[in-house]
C-alpha cells in the first residue's frame, strides 16, 4: 500500500511524454518515469521512494517494440522480461534475465525498469554490455542513440527528463557462444551473490558481472586476464579476481570471502562452458 498520492500519466507518444515531463518539472514536481512499476511500488510502500507524478511509458509504441530490424534487434524499454526471453531474439539476454526475481514478477518487470533499478544488481545490463548494445533515449533535447557503455557507468545515467526508449543490439552478437550463471545464497529466487553473462567473440571471452561489487560492470582488464593464453585456467581466475573495479561486497547475502570463492567457481564454470564451445 502506497501511503502518498501522486498523479499518473500514460502518454501515447514520445513527444507527449516529453511534454508532460516539462510541464510537471516547471511546477517543481518530483517526476518519475515508470514502465513496469514493480520497484516504484515496493519502494514507495516502505517510504523509500516518493513522487508527485509518474509517467508510465507503456503506452508509447516505440517502448513496446520487440523485433529484428535488419541487422539489429530492437527492444523497447517497456517490454517485460518474460517477453524478451520468450522471443529468443537474443538468447544470452533471455537466459540472463530469466534468473531475475520470479516468473510471475517477470511478466511485470520491464527491461527499462531493470536497467534503472535502484538495487545494485541490474542484471539485464550484463548481456547488453558484452554485446556492445546501443540505447535510444528521448528527452526535451530530442532523441539520441548512444553506445550503452557511454552512459552506463555503475548505473544508467540519463539527464533529467530523459528516458530510455529502446535498446539496440547488433545481430552479430546473438549467435556467439555464450554462458550465463547466477549464484545465490540458497534459493534460486533471490538476489545474486555472483551473476555473470559472457560470450565468446573472435575466440575472446567477454564477460560482465553483477552481485560482486556495488554495481554491475564489464571490465576489459578482467577479460584480458581471462584471455591470456600464457596462463593456466587457475592463474587466469586468480589474476582476474585481483582486477575487480572495487571491493567485493560483504552483506546479508554473503560475506566478501565467500563471494570471492563463488566468483572463482563461477568464472571456472564460465570458462569451461565457453571453452567447450570454443574447442
Amino acid at each position: 500500500m502506497i501511503p502518498f498520492d501522486f498523479d499518473y500519466y500514460r502518454p501515447d507518444s514520445i513527444s507527449e511524454a516529453v511534454q508532460i515531463y516539462e510541464t510537471l518539472a516547471k511546477q517543481s514536481k518530483k517526476v518519475l518515469f515508470y514502465s513496469g512499476g514493480t520497484e516504484f511500488i515496493t519502494f514507495s510502500r516502505i517510504n523509500q521512494l516518493y513522487a508527485d507524478a509518474v509517467i508510465d511509458l507503456k503506452g508509447i509504441p516505440e517502448c513496446n517494440t520487440l523485433e529484428m530490424q535488419g541487422e539489429q534487434i530492437v527492444i523497447g524499454a517497456a517490454v517485460s522480461l518474460n517477453k524478451i526471453t520468450e522471443s529468443n531474439l537474443f538468447p544470452l539476454l533471455g537466459q540472463t534475465i530469466k534468473k531475475i526475481a520470479d516468473h510471475t514478477s517477470r511478466n511485470k518487470i520491464t527491461i527499462g525498469g531493470n536497467l534503472h533499478s535502484r538495487l545494485i544488481y541490474r542484471e539485464s545490463v550484463l548481456p547488453l554490455l558484452v554485446a556492445e548494445a546501443e540505447v535510444r533515449l528521448a528527452g526535451s533535447e530530442g532523441e539520441t542513440t548512444v553506445q550503452l557503455e557511454e552512459i552506463f557507468n555503475q548505473q544508467l545515467s540519463t539527464s533529467p527528463g530523459q528516458f530510455l526508449v529502446q535498446i539496440i543490439v547488433p545481430k552479430t552478437y546473438t549467435d556467439s557462444p555464450f554462458a550465463s550463471f547466477k549464484k545465490t545464497k540458497m534459493s534460486k529466487v533471490g538476489y545474486p551473490i555472483v551473476s555473470i553473462a559472457a560470450i565468446l567473440k573472435n575466440k575472446q571471452i567477454r564477460a560482465a558481472l553483477s552481485g560482486v561489487c556495488e554495481y554491475p560492470f564489464r571490465s576489459v582488464e578482467i577479460e584480458a586476464a581471462l584471455n591470456d593464453s600464457s596462463l593456466s585456467i587457475e592463474e587466469k581466475i586468480e589474476k582476474a579476481v585481483t582486477l575487480l573495479p572495487s571491493q567485493i561486497i560483504d552483506d546479508i547475502q554473503a560475506s566478501s570471502d565467500y563471494r570471492e570463492f563463488v566468483l572463482k567457481n563461477t568464472l571456472h564454470e564460465t570458462m569451461e562452458a565457453l571453452g567447450a564451445a570454443h574447442g
Binding site: 540458497m186 533471490g190 546479508i252
Partner: peptide
C-alpha cells in the same frame, strides 16, 4: 536486516 520475504527466504517450490 531481513524483515521481508525476499531477504528472509523460505523454501520455494522445487527446493
Amino acid at each position: 536486516l531481513n524483515p521481508q520475504l525476499r531477504t528472509y527466504q523460505i523454501m520455494r517450490f522445487g527446493e
